[in-house]
Write a protein that binds this DNA or RNA. Structure first.
Lengths: 111, 111
DNA sequence: AACCTTCGTTACTATTAGTAACTAATTATA
DNA sequence: TATAATTAGTTACTAATAGTAACGAAGGTT
């Protein structure tokens, strides 16, 4: 494993979106800032991993975390400009999925 | 982990491209049909995983595997129509990476 | 006091990734 | 004839990541 002239930026970008849950988390946040439990409710992801992913995304400058010291504390996650710039990527994945992925229906009986 | 009304197609699509190496393998094959060792030489991926990923991609109908019984056997992997349809996704990831990812340069000294 | 909510963390198991050595078929080289 | 080389993998093993479940802290409510 010692190559190559592969563009290191593309490599980093692919590593980022080629990581479980990242795409769907960004898709969720494209709908607007959301709190932890809202994202968790929208996706089949556990709290442990969501917490880990939010930290990664903060470190990458894709997501910001804002604390509102309210009744029970409210913490909102939202996309930065860098994060919103991923919208075309998500849109293209969405389009491809609609065009090329079919859902297999459970068939009860053909009688 | 029991939700939601998330589109199952998008979920499947995200699962697919949100898997390590998949994006870069497709990026490589967009340059044209290639043999196993060429893809391996172009990416920092081991034979074991590349073999596994090609099998997955064949099962998904994204890649086809053609055997040419030549001098040493030649086996070429290429994208199907479904695979080529991922080009816009790859292009958008490429564009985003160019725009938003910077490479940290190693600095020897500032003297 | 006992319980609820939100936003996590900790501890543990299961799955996936990475590394290295090996195989089979054929061909080239010493 | 043995030795090595190439292609396309596989096998065996270790390391890293994901998934599950239970717990914790900081408040508020009953």
């Amino acid at each position: 494993m010692e190559q190559s002239d592969l563009c290191p930026r593309l490599q980093k970008g692919m590593d980022l979106i080629g990581k479980r849950w990242i795409g769907l988390i960004i898709y969720q946040l494209l709908a607007g800032p959301q709190r932890f439990c809202a994202v968790q409710a929208a996706l089949p992801i556990s709290g442990r991993l969501l917490s880990e992913r939010f930290k990664d995304l903060e470190n990458e400058g894709i997501v910001t975390r804002v604390v509102y010291p309210e009744i029970p504390v409210r913490i909102e996650y939202s996309l930065t400009e860098k994060g919103r710039a991923l919208e075309p990527v998500v849109r293209e994945i969405q389009r491809w999925s609609q065009d090329w992925i079919q859902i297999e229906q459970a068939v009860v009986s053909s009688e």
